[in-house]
């Protein structure tokens, strides 16, 4: 009996609509963020992550309204990432009802932003998102680097060291995505997850590659993740969050389930 491992559905939002085809039976319009958030809440999601993938800056304001609407009706923690670049961006999202903000590129360009934000708003609401890709080959010891721009741009920064540095700067949580696995449905990069989780004292969310429910359990048991994030397996109605939790519970992982 103790702290539960968390299951976190992730939603991509473009211009105020959830994209990548979330499909729920019984919802007429599956692109509506509020409807989708409510549905995941009913299924027992422990938190929700919204990633703003809007390209144009004019549409950025839309995300604030999305967060306001969801926060008025869904009473579990909400994390918002994408396009967060300044203290002011963070403040606006928190005021809109987000509980945490995730920073990725902005943290790389300006590591002091994480420190300043953690001092200003508290570590509990500052998440650093890391997109990592394996750069070691063959028999070399495994090594991962931080990439930006959806995995296209190499930064030269060691991912495990970066996670440590960000936790030291005040990040309260690390959202770790394997760019090698993202979209493959082959499961998390477990050695990467394990390396980062062992290196930092803050919680780590594993992301990228989930294709079935045993992958989620692997992320916790082998990757030592504190939370697991998935998108497509939930969006297409293949599995519900509750099914995911029951599978994890059957493997001896502590989860939040309504009995």
């Amino acid at each position: 009996m103790g702290l539960a491992k968390r299951i976190i559905p992730c939603l991509d939002v473009d211009a105020g609509r959830v994209v990548k085809g979330v499909r729920f039976v019984g919802i007429r319009d599956a692109g509506d963020p509020v409807e989708i958030a409510k549905r995941y809440d009913q299924q027992g999601a422990d938190e929700l992550v919204f990633l703003d993938i809007t390209a144009s800056s004019e549409e950025r304001e839309t995300m604030v309204h999305v967060v306001e609407q969801v926060a008025a009706q869904v009473f579990i923690p909400l994390t918002v990432g994408g396009g967060i670049r300044s203290i002011n961006d963070i403040r606006r999202m928190l005021n809109a009802g987000a509980d945490k903000v995730a920073m990725n590129t902005a943290a790389i360009h300006n590591p002091d932003l994480v420190k300043e934000a953690a001092e200003r708003f508290g570590s509990q609401c500052i998440v650093v998102a890391i997109d990592a890709k394996q750069v070691s080959t063959g028999d070399e010891p495994p090594r991962w680097e931080v990439f930006t721009h959806g995995g296209r741009k190499r930064t030269g920064i060691d991912a495990v060291q970066w996670a440590k540095q960000m936790a030291d700067a005040g990040a309260g949580e690390i959202l770790l995505t394997s760019m090698d696995r993202d979209g493959t449905r082959d499961g998390f990069d477990l050695p990467l997850t394990r390396a980062v989780s062992d290196a930092v004292s803050v919680p780590v969310i594993a992301s990228g590659g989930v294709g079935n429910l045993s992958h989620l359990a692997d992320g916790v048991k082998q990757g030592k993740a504190d939370a697991v994030l998935a998108a497509s397996i939930f969006h297409f109605g293949e599995y519900t969050v509750e099914e995911a939790k029951r599978t994890m519970a059957a493997q001896g992982i502590e989860v939040r389930l309504d009995e």
């Binding site: 702290l3 539960a4 422990d46 309260g172 949580e173 004292s201 803050v202 919680p203 504190d226």
Partner: peptide
């Protein structure tokens, strides 16, 4: 045997 993370974050009883 795993280290407990700080902050204590998530759903507890």
């Amino acid at each position: 045997g795993d280290a407990l993370k700080i902050p204590h974050m998530g759903w507890n009883q």
